[in-house]
Nucleic acid binder design. Structure first.
Lengths: 204, 204
DNA sequence: CAGGGAATCAAACGATCGTTTGAGCATACG
DNA sequence: CGTATGCTCAAACGATCGTTTGATTCCCTG
């Protein structure tokens, strides 16, 4: 573990890894603080409780992820020449960029766990802090797919969300071949997911 | 809890509910046996350990689910006039039938949890016992989508799996309107998922 | 009716959990 | 220099975990 980072950062990084590997319940504070190289009491001192630590793990990544998503969306939102692919790109590319920077894909696995857990408290936290992002994207999807009823649109967005979360949490993610650069591999993956999502959203 | 069922069945039913609600770690044997109305020691007596109980929860549902899937697949497999929708129907309909019979949708949530957990032991158990089903469906998809490379096919099947698991675990599942019968609502949902999956699998 | 294996029971086992405590250490300010 | 202040530390707290034990009850068979 990087001993130059602050105690809080080291805890957050170790927590992200262990939450991805063993789940929120499965990862104990003793494993976690040992991996981070800090004292057991440091979690409660700096974050208050284990639950607050979980929230901070989400906040740290989702703050930048959603900022990037909204920035990308604002560039294409409302324009007459915007395509469905443009909006999906704004949604998918920032998440994949997160997955590429070292430990980033771990966070998508943590997010997949949060979806699988039907924990009310965690869902409310995510909804309160980051629901507006989904709302903005949904509005733009609705504009580009006027043929779909609200019910139909929600259905398809939900299915696409499931597919993307599943894929980006690293399940069947095709391994990068050694003769392909990291950047071009990511570009291929983005194109891949966009094509799938666009087909699922806009099929007749 | 149904006091007429056997102790093993009552444990399995209560376990399915609590595993869906709180996860495999989060649901304790004390909560579980109390909900089932049996003694704490009954789990270890009848199943050997908590891990074995988890496996039995999967086995009970997947045995019949996969039998139905393979039976439906065998009716359309290899025929010249079989369509993609036919194969998807064979895959989706049995799962949705499971979701409809009372506590069945709980099992899809348990399955979604199993996907989110990257637990090696559980994944190996599922692969060993039920991997052949996915292999048979994959072979049939490959036959009907000869244009796709193996890599491309695996990608799309993985994305579809994520979408279906996500949806059937009851996330955004549209509530049945009171003026629609259960049977016709299920029929609509099957058609819905098939259309989405077909679009995602076969798009150009 | 007597005997015996299967099932259930209350109770306890050691281990591990999240959290709290109070002493000890560092650095910065009057 | 003395003393706040922020942080780290080992140790302990009570609670809960999965599992085991040994006695007791149940029910079938000979």
């Amino acid at each position: 573990m990087n001993s130059s980072a602050s105690t809080k950062e080291r805890i957050l990084t170790a927590a992200e890894l262990l939450f991805a590997q063993r789940g929120f319940d499965g990862a104990s504070l003793r494993q976690l603080t040992a991996a981070a190289g800090v004292n057991l009491a440091a979690v409660n001192y700096h974050f208050g409780s284990k639950d607050k630590l979980v929230e901070e793990v989400f906040r740290r990544r989702l703050d930048t992820l959603n900022a990037h998503r909204l920035a990308a969306l604002s560039k294409v939102s409302g324009r007459a020449d915007t395509t469905l692919d443009d909006v999906l790109d704004a949604f998918i590319r920032p998440a994949l960029a997160l997955s590429s920077d070292g430990s980033g894909s771990l966070f998508m696995r943590v997010l997949a766990r949060a979806f699988a857990e039907h924990d009310d408290h965690l869902r409310q936290f995510l909804s309160e802090n980051y629901g507006h992002v989904m709302r903005q994207f949904t509005a733009e999807f609705a504009r580009l797919l006027p043929r779909l009823s609200r019910e139909e649109l929600y259905w398809r967005i939900d299915l696409v969300t499931g597919a993307l979360t599943h894929a980006m949490s690293g399940f069947g993610m095709i391994q990068r071949k050694s003769d392909v650069s990291e950047a071009s591999h990511r570009e291929q993956t983005v194109a891949h997911l966009i094509r799938f999502a666009a087909a699922g959203l806009s099929h007749p």
